[in-house]
């Protein structure tokens, strides 16, 4: 602090603290968007080996970790929060599942890549709505990509497919 007016920065510093600009929705905000007014009960999920194999068979994707952030919705249905790599950076997303096993919505919570933030758009996420584990949930098949964000589109699509396969193992 050799400069006589360095202290002028102190009030500025007080205003630049925590909120992350790459966070578009918090977990709670996504829950309220998808299930407004509903009580959600956290029920962390750990897959056992048999479930893991079932999920891998159903989704055609490897399951790289066994713990998943999961909430049970009061009126039935489930809410997942998961993260996948876009190109290099993690994309955190939420998946809401209706009591009948169809997708209620997908929301992007954090997006950090320099390009491809358009996967946050409603028009892209809308493609998932009402689909179920019986649908392909594959890029270039029933999910179209965003030009310039192919990897982000593909990896979120795969993430949703994996979560839907996990959902299929849960009690309704």
């Amino acid at each position: 602090m050799n400069t006589p007016y360095a202290w002028l920065w102190l009030p500025v510093a007080a205003f630049t603290a925590p909120a992350y600009a790459t966070t578009y929705l918090t977990v709670e905000q996504a829950q309220q968007l998808m299930f407004p007014g509903q009580a959600l009960t956290a029920m962390p999920l750990r897959l056992d080996d048999a479930q893991r194999l079932t999920v891998e068979r159903t989704s055609g994707l490897a399951v790289p970790h066994l713990d998943f952030a999961l909430w049970r919705v009061g009126s039935g249905g489930y809410f997942f929060v998961d993260a996948v790599l876009g190109k290099h950076e993690l994309i955190t997303y939420a998946l809401g599942v209706n009591p009948d096993g169809t997708i209620k919505d997908v929301e992007i919570l954090d997006y950090r890549e320099s390009y491809g933030g358009e996967i946050r758009n409603a028009s892209w996420r809308q493609q998932f709505v009402h689909k179920s584990v019986a649908d392909p949930l594959k890029l270039d098949q029933d999910i179209r990509n965003i030009s310039g964000a192919t990897l982000s589109s593909r990896h979120v699509t795969e993430g949703v497919r994996r979560l839907m396969a996990i959902h299929a193992t849960l009690p309704r």
Partner: peptide, 19 residues
């Protein structure tokens, strides 16, 4: 099956914020 290397789903811990 696609290799996990192309889409390694990360741990849910990633949702706990970054920094």
């Amino acid at each position: 099956v696609l290799s996990t290397a192309s889409s390694p789903a990360s741990s849910p811990a990633a949702t706990a914020g970054g920094g």
